[in-house]
Amino acid sequence: MTAESKLLVIGYGNPGRQDDGLGPGCAALLADFIKQEKPCWPIDIDINYQLTVEHALAVSKANAVIFIDAARQLSSAYQYSQLTSSEGNVWSYHIVTPGQCLWLAEILYGKRPEAYLLAIQGVQFDNFEERLSDTALCNLNKAFQFLLIQLDRLLY
């Protein structure tokens, strides 16, 4: 997060596992869009396999954060929801959830930014394949258009 940045977008998931790559895919689309269309947008983009504890530091330095992840059981192409910080049920692994990431930012660094989760519906996750399904691609396009509107709202 640079000093003048206001917004952090974190797209996470494994592009080598089919639709689990929706988060990185959406974040990569955004990076291309900003580069070509909105170079003045003060947005930092982070693409990673998973959320891990050190994301809490970057989150604590942002004014607002949007997490983008693939989802399995949505009733629509995507779902956008505001997040609250949460310990979660169990922190068992090397990874953390968005709520736990916010909780860590708050308890370790004293800051909890406004945060949202953009969940995009995927349908195929079980094989090693670096390709989004047709359904996921369609959902990604819808979610991305919605994301641009939300970013514009958050920034201005």
């Binding site: 891990t52 504890v53 050190e54 530091l57 860590l104 370790l108 660094y109």
Partner: peptide
């Protein structure tokens, strides 16, 4: 908390 912060920054 200091230990946890150290862990985060060493990871980073």
């Amino acid at each position: 908390p200091e230990l946890a912060r150290q862990g985060v920054l060493m990871r980073k």
